[in-house]
């Protein structure tokens, strides 16, 4: 092989106006629409009941005591520790003291968990339905396109399938072929040509910055990643699947074994040394 041929495909300039631009505009608009649809579909987060709040914050208080115990004088730390440990062990802060020791109910039967799942379903639907529609639309309208006289022999062949609509202004390695020319079954076509279906995929995954610009950074226009992250809500501190009683007991144990060091011990000398320096 000598010099690689510079491929030129004489495209109809109207391709730009009738394919590239519509796809892009439609994609941006769907994103915006999806953002507002998501806002409408969102249900306000359910209010926690007072005992639940108390249970969670009591645990945080225990964690705080463990983490920052060194500000307390030994006497006051011991008093607090004794109180917290016994309260934790007795389950004094539990939201449902009766449910203590019983196995946790199946999360599927919990109405609160179901609600969360419904919310997720709604989000997924808002993502899937427009995608399916647009993909069908692109396939229906833009793939059977015949471009006017093409100089290359291959163009005859690809014109039936999916037409290259845009040429990227920079060279790319052949690995990008599957990404940029989906639906075009040619080996030799320069990777820089992009088919309309591929353009759709590029915009689908690459429009996040545009949405950020239009809708603000906190948008739900293109929330593929958000959906992934949301799959496991509240798995952190007191998720529905964790037994609060167990958490309290382990926290009590943590407090028991904590070695207490008072930060104010010898502060006078420390301060004098600091000021002298």
């Amino acid at each position: 092989m000598g010099q690689p041929l510079v491929q030129t495909i004489h495209r109809d300039p109207a391709l730009f106006w009738w394919i590239l631009l519509p796809i892009t505009v439609v994609m941006v608009l769907t994103g915006i629409l999806r953002h507002y649809a998501m806002i409408l579909l969102q249900t306000a987060p359910k209010k926690q009941e007072l005992p639940k709040i108390r249970q969670q914050r009591a645990l945080v208080r225990g964690i705080n005591l463990r983490g920052n115990a060194n500000v307390l004088s030994p006497a006051s730390f011991q008093a607090r520790k004794a109180y917290m440990v016994s309260a934790f062990q007795e389950g004094k802060f539990l939201a449902e003291p009766d449910a203590r020791g019983k196995p946790r109910p199946n999360p599927m039967s919990d109405p609160a968990a179901m609600e969360g799942m419904m919310g997720m379903m709604k989000g997924n639907m808002a993502m899937m339905i427009p995608q399916t529609l647009i993909m069908g639309w692109i396939n229906a309208f833009f793939s059977g396109f015949v471009i006017t006289p093409c100089s290359l022999a291959i163009s005859r062949h690809l014109a039936n399938r999916c037409c290259p609509t845009v040429k990227l202004p920079f060279p790319l390695t052949p690995q990008f072929k599957s990404m940029l020319q989906s639906g075009v079954g040619t080996r030799d076509l320069d990777v820089r040509w992009v088919s309309s279906l591929s353009w759709y995929f590029l915009t689908l995954f690459g429009l996040q910055p545009v949405y950020n610009f239009i809708l603000g950074s906190n948008n739900s226009a293109n929330n593929v990643t958000q959906q992934m992250a949301m799959a496991n809500p509240g798995a952190g501190l007191m998720g529905p699947e964790q037994d609060p009683d167990k958490l309290f007991l382990s926290e009590a144990e943590n407090l028991e074994v904590l070695e207490h060091r008072w930060i104010l011990d010898g502060i006078e000398d420390r301060l004098i040394a600091k000021m002298a320096a």
Partner: peptide, 15 residues
């Protein structure tokens, strides 16, 4: 003593 130490700590944190 406790007062002194806490004041000293306050000064240590913000001189």
């Amino acid at each position: 003593t406790l007062a002194l130490r806490h004041f000293a700590r306050a000064v240590e944190l913000n001189d």
